[in-house]
Design a protein around this nucleic acid. Structure first.
Lengths: 224, 224, 224, 224
DNA sequence: TATGAATGAGCATTCATTCAT
DNA sequence: TATGAATGAATGCTCATTCAT
């Protein structure tokens, strides 16, 4: 009995490993080529599996991409939650947030690019994966909803940190959601430069810069 | 002789008109579908030319895209120069700049997305225009000097406006290029939200928000 | 003006020719391999066009097959109508009918095989051409009215010929539709032998045989 | 020793059972989808075995199909022989034959369709069983003697029944083999209607119809 | 010049079959 | 023995680009 359990477990483990391996390979390829230009052959070669094998693990190219994005979101959400709970000043939380999101963008720069940018590709992907949306077939709930929800959750946490700062008197009494928006935009925009702006900042420099400008602005004198 | 000149001129004019017409059509399609998903058939249909005719005017799909981007840059550069020369405070110039760039992004949202984001599409595009280059896959493609130059020119103008503000005492004594960077990032990031964030701001609201946060930050108290 | 008309006409003609050429090639291939085993590559090679060109003329493999069947039906229907109108005895009409249908089966043996036999392939084909239909999987697919109508028309003409014969006193007073059914079955079955029955009859022999056996089944008066 | 024998026997028995079980499943799937469209996955799922296990019992998809057809033939042959030996009039034997063959077609409708119709599938199948043969594409494949022999045996029995009838004065003095041919054709054609002819006859009705039409074609003496 | 026609090179996906445990 | 995993070889279909008129 035990043996069998172990075996099943190991098998499950192998499957999980392979799926992750494929995901890694796919991520690399997607990052290099974007969604449309990436081919299953590329991914297969990178993953050192045959193309057909890819299809044992994932139903389609779209599903692979979907999975990558999904895991990304989840990861960011978890980390963001953790930061929020720490017992430090709002300003410090902000810094940590900026640092983490920056590092995330740094790591996943190109994948997130695709998601944020290849608008109609993404639309296609999500449509394809949710044509059967009227049937609760797969484990993933109706697609756009889940992403939207996760995005909002992340955004809300950002807002709450800002709120804390206002309450504690650290921050001005700005519109919270607008501020959240601006912060998100700054970080995003900072890491999504075009293919020709190559000024390089270290993670620390990036964080420092973003943090400082978001906190202080550039105006010399301020009324409130 | 004169007659011929006129004829040639008119012909040249017609050609120019057609090229622009094609560009407009292509822009619309690229905006809708991104680079990879847009087909020459789509563009031809939109432009009401035959596909083959497109190839009379442009060597390739890539070249069309290239041309669109190129004209965009030129337009932004001219406008930016104009703003700089106006006789108003740096703060006001900044506001105008934000307003203009925002409106630009608004108009060309999807096209600029593609340029900024579809990294390997861009690589492909630009390669075609300079076939001798075999680039390493890992880095930004070596961009034709012309683009780089234009970008820098735009960026420099932004920096000069900030510099003016510092000189005139309007702005804090921040690092100019960093500030320019942050400003660019904010605007860019503000207009490049993912496919599911749909908060909408009017152009005026956007400008106000960006301007205000860039100027003042969110911190309540400031030392310098 | 005239020139243009001619040109357009000639062009239209060329298109029609090519379509027919492709159809011929496809028919040959389908006959050799059946629907599923026939590939677009096969057809393209046979037609001496590139595969992509096939798709200029027909939207899909299914459509090609569909077209072949459709034209077949039409041809048979026309011929059948003509036979019915001739001013000869019912018995002779029957013979002509048998002769014609036999020659038709002979020519199109394998194509008609596919249509009559590759049930689920046909279902697939026809579904594709009429997506609006949601069929129960268990039964015959609701076929485009057009096919059903044509088939019935043909069948009805057969019945009418039999009816004529009964009225004229040539035939026994059998159930007309049953007799029609049997006649159809005889001819069909005669020409659809398995892949290992290779007794060969000439067209005349086939006709004679079928006619004689069918007739002496329903003929009222007989010598021997 | 004895023990071992039992074990071996039981094992053999299990194997036989499994083979039959697989055959049943395959038959169902083939009937639903035809040869080409049926996948080993389908069959495996239906048989509740793993795909690989199928290959333990049969070398290929083709072999499975082959086996199904083979058993069919054998069954028909046995039954036909039995009918022939019965001590009843030729007319009655004919009726029994028609009844049995009809019921057989009814049961195996789709399988027999495939065999009779999917010409090149059959060629493929049978080739696999005799790899040395490279056949011209235009003609019937050289079929294993065994099939041909069985078919002929069945056909011969039909002929002999007709012969009996002629001898006994029940039937006209027709060409025996031709009559056999026509009978076969009638039954076959009756049960192989296209996908759109859906007149339904009960087994009894079918038999009655076929018998009556065939008989009154060859019967010497008739009342009406 | 303008364009309908033609195509080579791909691409996502499938499936019969083999392999390793 | 039974099977989950792996894959080579296809296959239908697409699309940027070229050709011929």
């Amino acid at each position: 009995m035990k043996k069998k359990d172990f075996r099943a477990e190991r098998k499950q483990h192998r499957i999980e490993e392979n799926k992750i391996f494929i995901l890694k390979a796919a991520e690399k390829i997607f990052a290099q080529k974007g969604f449309s230009l990436a081919t299953m052959d590329d991914i297969a070669e990178e993953a050192q599996f045959s193309k057909a094998t890819l299809y044992r693990y994932y139903k389609s190219k779209s599903e692979i991409f979907f999975e990558i994005i999904y895991k990304s979101f989840e990861e960011v959400l978890q980390k963001t939650k953790k930061i929020k709970k720490e017992e430090i000043s709002a300003e410090k939380k902000l810094r940590e947030l900026i640092y983490y999101v920056s590092s995330y963008y740094h790591k996943k720069k190109n994948i997130s690019r695709i998601f944020i940018m290849e608008k109609s590709a993404v639309r296609k992907i999500l449509n394809l994966n949710s044509k059967e949306q009227f049937l609760p077939l797969s484990k993933h709930p109706p697609i756009p909803a889940i992403f939207k929800a996760k995005m909002e959750e992340i955004f809300n946490i950002m807002c709450e940190i800002i709120k804390e700062g206002i309450k504690s008197g650290e921050f001005r009494n700005v519109d919270i959601r607008n501020a959240g928006f601006i912060l998100g935009a700054m970080i995003r925009g900072f890491h999504f430069r075009g293919p020709m702006q190559d000024a390089e900042f270290s993670l620390e420099e990036s964080t420092e810069l973003l943090h400082s400008f978001f906190l202080y602005g550039i105006k010399k004198d301020r009324k409130a």
